[in-house]
Structure formats: C-alpha cells, structure tokens
Simulated assay, not measured.
Amino acid sequence: MAETPVIKGEVRKEFGKGAARRLRRDWRLPGVLYGEGHDNYHFHVDLLEMQTLIRYEGVNAVMELELEGQQHLCMVRHIDQNILTLDIDHIDLLTVKRGQKVEVEVPVVTEGEIAPGGQLLQETDNVLVLVDPLKIPDEIVINVEGMEIGTQIFSSDLPLPDGVSLVNDEEDDLFVNITEPEEAEVPEEGDEAPETDGEDAPAGQEPDAVDEGSKNDSDTE
C-alpha cells in the first residue's frame, strides 16, 4: 500500500476575505478541516503542494494534514476553484478513520471498441460508492469491446472493485447505451427554397427601393 502523503499546515489566525486574499498572494491556500470528534480547524497550506497532490491523486485525495505537530487523516471534500486562473481558492477537508467507509463520487470511463455500426452513448459520468478512504479507486472502467446495438450497462452491471459498494443500490441508473447512429436529415428533391423579401418586387425595381413618384409627391405637399 502506498504511503499516505503528509501536508504540513498552519492554523489560521485571521479570517475574512481580506485575510484570505493576503494568504493567496503569498501562495498559501486557506481551508477548513471538519469531522466527528473535534472542532473545526481553520488552516492554510502551501498552494502548489496541495494542487500537485490533487492533480496526481484526484479530487478524492487522502492525506495526513499536520497541524501544530498533530497529524489528521483526512480527504478532500470540496474545492473552490478560481474560474480565471484555475487555481484553488479554498479547500474543505473531512477527517476520516482507517477502516471506516465513506461516500465518494468516482468517475466512470469506458475502454475498447464497440461492434461496427453502433454508437456509444455514456449517459452517466460518475457513481456514488461506499468505500474505505484508503482504497478509493481512481475510476470505474467499463469494457465495451464488441458490444452491439441494444446493449445497455446499468449501475448494477458496473465492475466494482472488492470492498466498494453502491450507495444507491435500489436505483439502477443507465451508464452506457449502444444505439443505432442518428441519420442526418437530407432535403427531398423538389423542396422549394425559402422565399426572400425581394422575390415579389416588380422586375427592374430593387426590393427596398423608394418609389420616386411617391417621393416627389410628398416633397410638393
């Protein structure tokens, strides 16, 4: 089993938007750690270190957060991301216990080639599962190799790893649907082109031209 990464943080002394902006200017990421058995901890950590961890471990990353010499086993629960820079602005961490399962969303992906003539539609991209926080899979992979038109894969068909179970096992959601390709509509021969505003204008006259006679009459009134 891979060693759980350790992220060293510091307890926050100042709060508010101004304090958070000052932290981010110093490349520090503000966050909060919550969970059963302890008060909430407001902290800040190195921004690049946390972003690197999440980039490689995913949005369900598990870590040991070290605060004031004490380590807390926790996982990412929520991320606020800057829509312009894509940097993380704030992070919520949840305290977890070894062997105690948690609910997490795991991506579902496909691999392989379906049978010729079909079209693969992935109806759902994530599945909510119950799993030990130290054994969260990176993704659930559906092998669609050779699947023919009419084949459907529901949540009950997902190849879940050992120790992973569905949270909503009563709801059988559709994940993969192999259908016939949609045919583009082709105009039938003889269909008339849509009329334009100028088609009813008399020959030799521009569609929007002003009748000179009417113009002269109005000038003399």
Results as ranks from 00 to 15, higher is better:
Val62Asp: 07
Ile142Asn: 08
Leu93Pro: 07
Gln51Leu: 09
Ile140Arg: 01
Lys17Asn: 10
Met1Gln: 13
Glu183Gly: 09
Thr220Asp: 14
Pro107Phe: 04
Gly31Leu: 08
Glu182Ile: 11
Gln152Glu: 14
Asp200Tyr: 08
Ser165Pro: 02
Leu130Gly: 08
Glu199Met: 14
Gly35Val: 06
Val32Pro: 02
Leu158Cys: 06
Gly99Gln: 09
Ala115Asp: 02
Asn168Leu: 14
Phe175Asp: 02
Glu212Cys: 02
Glu111Ala: 14
Asp87Gly: 08
Glu188Gly: 05
Ile83Met: 01
Thr85Trp: 10
Arg28Lys: 15
Gly37Val: 04
Leu67Met: 06
His42Glu: 10
Phe175Lys: 07
Glu3Tyr: 00
Asp169Gln: 11
Glu36His: 13
Asp92Glu: 09
Gln70Asn: 11
His90Gly: 08
Gln51Lys: 12
Pro202Lys: 00
His72Ser: 10
Glu68Asp: 15
Met147Lys: 13
Cys74Arg: 00
Gly99His: 03
Leu120Gln: 04
Glu105Ile: 07
Asn216His: 14
Ile83Ser: 11
Gly18Gln: 09
Glu188Thr: 11
Thr179Met: 01
Val45Gln: 02
Glu64Ser: 12
Gly112Asn: 02
Pro30Trp: 06
Val210Phe: 12
Val167Met: 04
Pro107Met: 07
Tyr34Gly: 03
Glu195Thr: 09
Glu185Met: 13
Val109Met: 11
His90Val: 06
Val96Gln: 07
Leu48Arg: 15
Met147Thr: 01
Pro161Val: 10
Asp89Tyr: 05
Leu166Tyr: 04
Leu174Glu: 03
Asp157Tyr: 02
Asn60Val: 00
Leu174Asn: 08
Val176Ile: 15
Ala203Ser: 12
Leu23Phe: 01
Glu171Pro: 05
